[in-house]
Nucleic acid binder design. Structure first.
Lengths: 388, 388
DNA sequence: GACTCTTGGAGAAACGTATCTTCAGACCGG
DNA sequence: CCGGTCTGAAGATACGTTTCTCCAAGAGTC
């Protein structure tokens, strides 16, 4: 007791009325700080009586362990960065699209459930902000090729999991949709509904989503023998989308079905169709990729492809925390991702092979805009009942 | 140099291949760690030559100061909590409504601009998550009366600024719209457009927004001599809104104009009106509170009240950081809030008076749904040209 | 030449926790 | 009676900064 009391005495003279520290608790309980730490953290070998007594004293003193000190000592902050990449020169697309909002929400929730909190950090943030925060790991949304930020993070030993298959930057793991399969699915769906010439509304940026989707479309055209009909525009510019939709329907080789890669494309295409006197779905079949449920209420309702951002967000965070906690994902201790795991994930062992990736399924929500036969049906599964 | 070299030597034997620390930089540059710290942080009295040499060495070694250690030492983490309150039993309304998404985005941006990052923390989070994070301050969105979380934060000395005038919990400062003025404005606007009986669609929860708005409506009715016509529903339940909208228009004393307090009310009311064969705006004038621009594209476009979440988010964060940095908001050093400041903010001096509040203006975006005369006009200022 | 300033920089003490090591004593079998 | 094991707990160190205090030497000043 004497030592603890001495320390406490010293402190009380040097500082006044500050928050109670572990030493104060130790002194008040008549034990050492080791015992306090052990009692509060459920470690060490202590009789339950001591444990509860210490806890009670700590409670009475309103003791709150210093997160900073704990982080310094343990090397764990309980903080995960959520990086939102910026489109073009736009400062900040976070929550701009429903996809990001949903994904961020699910990620926050999943992290919280495992005791971590999320720090929202645009990739364009000042470097001093980044380096001033103790991060246990980072989620990166849709990193561009050769993202210097990701590279530096990875090099400095911070686990990085990306939403979107990374181009050339090393990551611990990544999660993405099977964009190729999704596009092919939609094209088949439109063909079955009677489409003869399917057009595409796509973006000019080089992110994986845009690239894979466009390539899948072009490949399908080649295979089926259809001339590609597509227009591109900078996806981050909301005004440009309407213009591109107009361009697409104004072409001499006007498509009789269109798939739009971005969320606002549905309303833009619908408006353009109206301007050209095209009826949907009679004259024009429409599908777009969107997480917004406004398309259930448009006239007519529009078929959408959902990328399942909630599943993605949850999976990304779980993979990241697994990596942080050093869990072997094969063992029983690891948290199982919810979606189907097409690629068996392996955690990076120094310099062997590509980082493990997980492909998540998408969901096609079929509505009136892509059905000629029975426009009364509103929602149906994407494939015939026999499909997996 | 000897001491530094010794320390470096000791360390290199005990640990291998870890990140470079300040000691390593000091040893490599042949100076003391004090000098390194001063050089890197622009403090102390050092000739530029030494400064740049140290910086260069640090760069070469890839030195990144430990955020945890800095936080422990300085007591500043550069982290701000963003608390999203939960509606009813719903887990998590963050980004649910456009208001929160916009507000959070603006807050993140503003914080980043001043060197802080935001940690998203639902009020329902496990306590261990809260206490495990070193927060310099917290933004609380719409705290309920007697929020225990806010009370504890405030008591433990963490500055708290709330979006929404707090009920009974102590905060450092708060920001809110002038909801009473906004409602009165809308009611006047509808009256001028020819409404004889104005109805209200409101919520059952007790948050400030709902309470003040409803009270303003009731007061106006009393003053004008109109019998109140309103329906309430739990705002967090999206399905209940449509039902309540239907109830309101099914009443025997059916209103000829309705103001809906929540974002989805516009589409719900429009759908209900259609079901009852009511034309908007001919038979029914419509206004709702929303940040979504879908109401510019509905048929007809709907007049909305914007609470200006971006301004709110920016102001809240700036007030919080002012408090964290101990800036007297009256002095030139303080960051000026952008909006009009109806109450002169004073920072809390122990136990005197209520916390300083700032009222921000709202904006009425007038569209066809609330105008009988000239439905062609789409957007106009809320008041007559003479108004402030 | 003794004195004050000023400049450049080093030493060492925190910050508050977690944990490794050590240690005294109790208990126990032979 | 003695060595060994187990329990309960204290001591000390390290985590990596920032910053307060102090000192040496050079530069002026009278």
């Amino acid at each position: 007791m004497t030592a603890a009391a001495n320390q406490s005495g010293r402190r009380s003279t040097s500082r006044r009325l500050e928050r109670a520290g572990i030493r104060d608790v130790a002194a008040a309980a008549g034990v050492s700080i080791t015992t306090v730490s052990d009692a509060l953290n459920g470690k060490g070998r202590l009789p339950d009586e001591t444990r509860s007594r210490v806890r009670e004293v700590a409670e009475r003193l309103g003791y709150r362990p210093s997160a900073a000190a704990r982080t310094l000592r343990t090397g764990r902050s309980g903080l995960i960065g959520l990086t939102v990449t910026t489109y073009g020169e736009e400062p900040f697309t976070f929550t701009e699209f429903a996809y990001f909002a949903e994904m961020a929400r699910a990620a926050t929730s999943a992290a919280l459930g495992r005791g971590f909190a999320l720090v929202v950090l645009p990739a364009s943030s000042r470097h001093d902000v980044w380096s001033n925060i103790a991060l246990d790991g980072t989620v990166v949304i849709d990193p561009p090729d050769q993202d210097p930020l990701v590279t530096e993070l990875y090099r400095s030993g911070v686990p990085v999991v990306s939403d979107g298959k990374p181009g050339n930057c090393p990551v611990t793991a990544w999660v993405d949709n099977d964009h190729e399969a999704a596009v092919l699915d939609i094209l088949d769906h439109l063909s079955e509904a009677g489409a003869r010439r399917i057009g595409l509304l796509t973006g000019t940026s080089t992110d994986t989503y845009t690239r894979l989707s466009t390539e899948a479309y072009l490949g399908w055209c080649r295979r089926v023998g259809q001339e590609p009909v597509y227009e591109t525009y900078p996806a981050h510019d909301p005004a440009a989308g309407a213009v591109a939709a107009d361009r697409l329907l104004a072409r001499p080789d006007r498509p009789d079905a269109v798939y739009g890669l971005f969320d606002p494309n549905g309303t833009d295409l619908l408006a353009a169709a109206r301007r050209y006197g095209l009826r949907v779905p009679e004259d024009l079949l429409l599908v777009c990729c969107s997480e917004s449920d406004v398309y259930a209420g448009t006239e007519p309702p529009i078929t959408t492809l959902s990328l399942k951002p909630r599943k993605i967000g949850t999976t990304v965070v779980n993979l990241l925390i697994d990596a942080i906690e050093g869990v072997d994902p094969g063992s029983a201790g690891g948290h199982r991702a919810e979606g189907s795991r097409l690629f068996p994930p392996r955690f990076r062992t120094a310099g062997t092979g590509p980082p493990p990736g997980t492909l998540m399924p998408t969901e096609l929500i079929v509505r009136a805009s892509s059905q000629r036969r029975s426009p009364r049906r509103t929602v149906s599964p994407p494939r015939s009942p026999g499909g997996g």
